[in-house]
């Protein structure tokens, strides 16, 4: 099963490689990983999406906790939480399709953040389903480039 794990770490040199090395060294799989500083500049937060059976996930959590630079590990999958991901997608639709693309951006509450005579660059934020659905629709309009941030997630208040 898929799990979204939030890892609070010391914002120190080498921490990312300790975490990613743990996954590769033990054969765990990372579907996405995003890192950033928190309000406290000494602390960073990583959101890792991984998959495995219960035993594997238990090991991942325990092994992460064992790292000296890891302060806290929360498996968000076990609690009610909000997940978001952002993508930037560059499409080059045919002239007659341009309006349709813009309409879809509207429906998905996305934004066109750059455009050229041939292309639109679109920003979409949402949960996985929404993003997948949007990307699926864009396939008809000649996708040129596509980047995604990986998931970030946060527990809903009151259920922690």
């Amino acid at each position: 099963m898929r799990h979204t794990i939030s890892v609070l770490v010391e914002n120190k040199f080498g921490v990312l490689s300790r975490v990613s090395g743990l996954f590769s060294g033990r054969g765990y799989n990372i579907e996405s990983l995003s890192v950033g500083e928190t309000i406290d500049p000494n602390i960073s937060i990583m959101t890792i999406v991984t998959s495995g059976d219960d035993q594997v996930i238990e090991q991942i959590t325990k092994q992460l906790n064992k790292l000296i630079d890891v302060i806290k590990v929360v498996d968000l999958t076990e609690v009610d939480h909000v997940e978001r991901e952002m993508i930037l997608i560059k499409v080059a639709p045919k002239r007659e399709d341009k309006a349709e693309v813009l309409r879809l951006v509207e429906i998905f509450r996305g934004k066109v953040v750059d455009s050229s005579p041939q292309t639109y660059t679109i920003e979409i934020t949402g949960d996985e389903k929404k993003i997948e659905a949007f990307v699926e629709l864009m396939k008809a309009f000649n996708i040129k480039e596509f980047v995604r941030t990986g998931k970030i997630a946060i527990a809903r208040e009151g259920v922690k």
């Binding site: 035993q55 238990e58 090991q59 325990k62 092994q63 906790n65 064992k66």
Partner: peptide, 8 residues
Amino acid sequence: IDPSSIRK
């Protein structure tokens, strides 16, 4: 003493 040894 090592939680990760348990159920590994």
